[in-house]
Design a binder for these strands. Structure first.
Length: 414
RNA sequence: GGCCCCAUCGUCUAACGGUUAGGACACUACCCUUUCAAGGUAGUGACGCGGGUUCAAAUCCCGCUGGGGUCACCA
């Protein structure tokens, strides 16, 4: 999906890279070795309480009206030899980080500056679970260090766990990366975007007919603005003009309406007609064989689409005789039958239904009958398209072709 | 509740001490027009509140209020 968006990763489980393996489970031994290093150095300790005991502690704190203050560190000062013996005896245990009890940990965040946490508020986080697997905290820090990560860019929700991450780095004696906590992408309810409040998977936007260029462009304008204020920009523009000091910190609400507008903008102004036709064909072909008028239909629809998914429902009458009529179209047809039957022979007389010929015909017919075009065109439009809302009638008739137009008019009059 | 982050139109944002607070989406009106779109023009609409600092504050400081996040052997 990142490839689809135009953001191929330099390294990943799929493409490989110099820091392989990239699958966390394949790095288990490294994580365990690192954990052991911390234990030997006295920076971490074995802890024997059960999950049930922890849950009980939490509930008791809640009943007393006090909010949970974190793990009570009951095994922090257990003699290492005793802990070792209990572990050797097979007693289930976790490995916890021995965070400093006093002083402060300062997170230097590139966007927010210095964020200070009291060490007394920190928790002795579990590094290795009782099943022997590392927690995210341990695994991610070890992997980041091993892989030479210089900038940790993640959402704001991670900010409060960063002091723990810094303490892990310090326990190992490693140099910290640059921390950057980005602002929220919110749903219409002003809360973290979720499935309830909007789609969160890139795939669902692809499936709904959004263009990757429009999606990445839209995402790029959430919490960021181009130096010259332009709103239409691509990944390459982002690469050349991005700077952290143009990132705003307030969370932004994902507005599907603006995404649709932007997508339509790409459809009608950025993509070439050829490109658009190819994408529509790949997204949802209306027929098995590409019809000869396909490109012409795409051309007349380009200004009327917000997403690729709009194409099929709006063009059904081009691909089949079995298209629906709207209520208004039926009424207009009924009221205009007389006009239509007078018009039919004249249409039959035309060599081809190109826009020039038909327009001339309508003008002459209108003059002869003393009618306005507004009386003549709607019934014809209704007869051939089943709707009163369509592209320009001239192009429409041409794309349909004389044969189909006449057939549909006759059918409407029958 | 403790701790942490954040705060300009309904929404996305510009402004980096001095502007009639600008643009975009949406909305409304008008123009164009064979309908629908697209396009054009105009309009409605914001600096959360209170103190400072300063000749001057949306911009800097403090407090309040409001919103969000986080308090797992999940990430």
């Amino acid at each position: 999906m990142l490839e689809w968006l135009g953001l191929p990763p330099d390294e990943s489980p799929a493409v490989g890279g110099p820091n392989a393996p990239y699958v966390q489970s394949e790095r288990l031994e490294r994580h365990q070795a690192y954990a052991n290093q911390l234990l030997q150095a006295g920076k971490a300790y074995r802890s024997f309480e059960t999950a049930a005991e922890l849950e009980q502690m939490r509930q008791e704190a809640e009943q007393e009206g006090n909010s949970y203050r974190g793990y009570d560190r009951r095994y922090r000062d257990l003699e290492p030899e005793v802990a070792q013996r209990r572990a050797d005896a097979g007693e289930a245990h976790t490995l916890r980080l021995k965070v400093p009890l006093e002083g402060h940990t300062v997170v230097q965040d590139l966007l927010r500056g210095a964020v200070t946490f009291k060490n007394s508020e920190l928790d002795d986080k579990v590094l290795v679970k009782s099943d022997g697997f590392p927690t995210y905290h341990l695994a991610a820090m070890c992997d980041d260090h091993d892989m030479g990560i210089t900038h940790v860019i993640r959402a704001e929700e991670w900010l409060v766990s960063t002091p723990i991450h810094i303490q892990i780095y310090r326990a190992f004696g490693w140099e910290e990366p640059q921390w950057i906590h980005t602002p929220w992408l919110l749903g219409a309810d002003h809360k973290k975007l979720s499935k309830r409040t909007g789609d969160v998977s890139v795939e669902s936007y692809r499936a709904r007919g959004f263009l990757p260029e429009a999606l990445i462009n839209y995402l790029g304008m959430m919490g960021f603005s181009m130096p010259d204020q332009r709103e239409i920009f691509g990944v390459q523009d982002l690469i050349t003009h991005f700077s952290w000091d143009r990132v705003s910190l307030g969370g932004s609400i994902f507005d599907i309406e603006k995404l649709k507008w932007l997508n339509g903008k790409y459809i009608r102004e950025v993509l070439t007609l050829e490109d658009l036709a190819n994408r529509i064909w790949a997204f949802a072909p209306p027929t098995t064989e590409k019809p000869e008028n396909f490109d012409a239909v795409v051309k007349m629809m380009a200004q009327r689409l917000e997403t690729l998914a709009d194409f099929l429902p709006k063009t059904a009458y081009f691909w089949s005789e079995d298209f629906a009529f709207t209520e208004k179209a039926l009424q207009t047809l009924e009221a205009g039958k007389a006009i239509l039957s007078d018009l039919l022979p004249q249409l039959e007389g035309l060599e081809t239904l190109d826009p020039t010929s038909t327009h001339d015909l309508f003008a002459a017919f209108a003059a002869e009958k003393g009618l306005k075009l507004g009386k003549i065109m709607p019934p014809l439009r209704a007869a051939v398209a089943g709707t009163l809302e369509s592209p320009d009638l001239g192009s429409l008739l041409e794309a349909l072709g004389k044969e189909r137009v006449l057939t549909r008019v006759r059918r409407a009059l029958a």
